[in-house]
Design a protein around this nucleic acid. Structure first.
Lengths: 234, 234
DNA sequence: AAGTGGTCTAGACCACCGG
DNA sequence: CGGTGGTCTAGACCACTTA
């Protein structure tokens, strides 16, 4: 039924998007209220609301009570990408996954790490883990991780040579927030040897801080082997 | 009113999330149907639907008709980040923005670019643009862009020395999809000179393909100055 | 075939906040 | 103050998929 189709919230979303792109509704301008659009499209206001809410989430519209809905003046594209467990990242690319635990020690983190983890200076020691993730036996990523054992006491009893800290944490602790940073760095001598590449090679570095209810759980730096790409669809 | 609060969709979402994290509902297990939860929470099914739909979007639940709703076996964190116009990226960091158009020519793209743009071999020439984005007069990013003039004819008349191609395209053409890739590369001699850094320095490279209704519009490679970080909150 | 999520409706109340 | 979006309800029909 076309009549039904043109009343679906997706159809309304597409029509609104068309008007934005066609400049029928100019950037920054106010668009009709939900109630008016509902009359125009011959549907319930909730249906219009669903469509406009979706467009607002995508960054095309800005909505405020009383002030109404406006076409975003500076449409900011938003991209989403997944942060999988590394084992899955490797396996999804068709590689056989393995990992090697290089170091496991309780230690005081350098001030920079403590700051990144939002922990006060002079706090307790943390669990320091260094490991190598392999794809088909070749280095995929080198991981340097600090774990706040106060937030994850159980990890002290885990066999991290069998199950990587990455997977243990995902399986045992919820993540309520954190930070994610991507940068490029030249491989130092140690990283170059671990990743079996030339010193100075451009390395994609991912830093990740994860929080559980505001409490810092772990901070990890992942050095990916040269050529690694983070990809996402817009 | 607490009774009202506990019936809001956010409250239901939080309670469901709590049960997942508390293992009351195990990973991979099926959870009660919407109708049952609506009875338990004393609310309308639409309210439960809103909560569960939100959790599914966040990756905590997997929903399928008839099969029901399950706790995601491998919770995949999803991060969102903004793709702003470069001018805004610079200005948001407190820099004064400027840009320099280095080259503007019609040319045949190398096969790799044509492939990335999903254009057939031997097609028409494209508009090739190279420019430098500056922050407080210092290099911020070097841009190498190809524009499919068949999809954006108006750009041939634009004064791209005044308004960057980036902004012109955002202002004149909708974006319906594309690809986004982040990688690390060693600076070659040309890039090093343009970005005023040492040859071989690790450079964060962003490749972006944008489509308009399935038609390729532009493919751009952005080489960011050393030290650049792409950051997002999880 | 039937259970489940996806969506729509018509109406209602409310929170917010601009004029 | 009053208009606007945010949300909730009770009910309904439908699409999909699996048992």
């Amino acid at each position: 039924m076309t009549a039904r189709t043109t009343r679906s919230w997706q159809a309304i979303r597409d029509e609104v998007l068309r008007r934005i792109h066609a400049r029928e509704w100019a950037a920054g301008a106010r668009i009709p209220a939900e109630a008016d659009l509902a009359v125009e499209f011959g549907c319930a206001r909730a249906t219009v609301n669903r469509a406009l809410r979706d467009l607002a989430e995508s960054g095309f519209l800005e909505r405020r009570r009383r002030a109404g809905t406006r076409v975003a003046a500076h449409p900011v594209r938003k991209a989403r990408f997944d942060i999988p467990v590394i084992r899955r990242e490797v396996e999804d690319r068709g590689g056989a996954y393995a990992h090697v635990l290089l170091e496991r020690a309780r230690a005081a983190p350098p001030p920079g790490v403590r700051g990144q983890m939002r922990l006060p200076p002079g706090g307790p020691q943390l669990l320091h883990l260094r490991s190598l993730h392999l794809s088909d036996g070749r280095p995929h990523a080198y991981e340097d991780r600090w774990v706040n054992t106060a937030a994850a006491p159980g990890i002290l009893k885990a066999d991290l040579a069998r199950q990587s800290a990455n997977e243990w944490l995902v399986a045992h602790l919820p993540v309520t927030g954190g930070d994610y940073v991507i940068a490029a760095e030249n491989a130092g001598a140690e990283v170059a040897e671990l990743l079996d590449c030339a010193a100075g090679a451009a390395i994609l570095v991912v830093e990740r801080l994860t929080l559980n209810g505001g409490e810092p759980v772990t901070f990890v730096r992942l050095h990916h082997a040269p050529g690694h790409r983070v990809q996402t669809a817009i």
